[in-house]
């Protein structure tokens, strides 16, 4: 498994964009997600980002996995807002019968609460989708050069990129450690959650020790390759913004400014406006 193939299948127009313009897209989407409190608008935003993900060739299976992972969290969000968000809740959909102990009569599920919960879900969905959209479509080298161009210290950019480089290696290692444990009679499938957590904590010991040995090896390797962490170096890859990058950056800024102006002038995006 390599970084380049996680989730993304082929080159897309997105891969051609500079990291900085994609970062702008990420910031704009994040800003809008927090600016807007209207379920309809946040849903629209999440949908746009989802479509972009599909255009960029991020696999449906990856997206499906992410959603499945988030599902319990979303259920909790929906229920807590639905039942307990008293700030927005006005229209009861269901009220607990009076005969229920303690909560009878007072606990109610409100339409506005549910709507607010949905909005929070769409908001986080936007964030969850936009990050892979930017990261997975960026070659690691462009990422590192892009970061350096944005005046992030070279050493930090390098640590960031090499961490990503070694993630697949680490996953392989975790796999072989758990395999070794199963071969010594650990039957994960028969264990309770608590027992499993104990087992996972055991994986950490060889993993961390192995990582420490490796990281020292890598330090020696880096030193041997004349690496000193100094930003005073040359770069093989250029990082230049093309017209399409400028267009995207301007578009993102434009949308953000317009949305901000509309919000202040007419309240667009505020929660609870008719027709949300």
């Amino acid at each position: 498994m390599t970084w380049r193939t996680i989730g993304s299948i082929q080159e897309s127009p997105f891969h051609q964009l500079d990291f900085r313009s994609k970062l702008m897209l990420l910031l704009a989407a994040t800003f809008l997600a927090f600016l807007w409190e209207s379920p309809a608008l946040t849903a629209g935003l999440a949908l746009v980002v989802l479509v972009l993900c599909l255009v960029a060739g991020i696999g449906l299976s990856y997206l499906g996995r992410m959603l499945r992972l988030m599902l319990p969290f979303y259920a909790i969000v929906l229920l807590t807002h639905g039942f307990w968000n008293t700030n927005v809740g006005r229209t009861p959909l269901w009220i607990a019968p009076e005969t229920w102990w303690l909560i009878g009569g007072s606990l109610q599920l409100t339409l506005e609460g549910l709507a607010y919960g949905l909005m929070v879900i769409f908001r986080t969905l936007t964030l969850i989708l936009v990050i892979p959209l930017v990261i997975f479509t960026t070659d690691l080298n462009s990422l590192i050069v892009g970061l350096v161009r944005m005046r992030i210290p070279y050493k930090i950019a390098f640590i960031f990129s090499s961490t990503l480089r070694f993630v697949p290696l680490l996953l392989e290692e975790i796999n072989s450690i758990t395999e070794a444990q199963r071969l010594r009679g650990l039957a994960l499938e028969k264990m309770s959650l608590l027992q499993r957590l104990r087992v996972y904590s055991r994986v950490a010991v060889p993993l961390i020790l192995g990582a420490m040995v490796k990281s020292q090896q890598i330090e020696v390797v880096l030193a041997s390759k004349a690496f000193s962490g100094s930003p005073d170096r040359t770069y093989l890859h250029e990082s230049s913004l093309r017209a399409v990058d400028y267009a995207l950056i301007i578009l993102c800024m434009g949308i953000v400014l317009v949305a901000l102006w509309l919000r202040m002038a007419s309240g667009l995006g505020r929660f609870g406006l008719p027709g949300w």
Partner: peptide
Amino acid sequence: ETQLIANS
């Protein structure tokens, strides 16, 4: 594995 540090 550990002495190749770049991505291409």
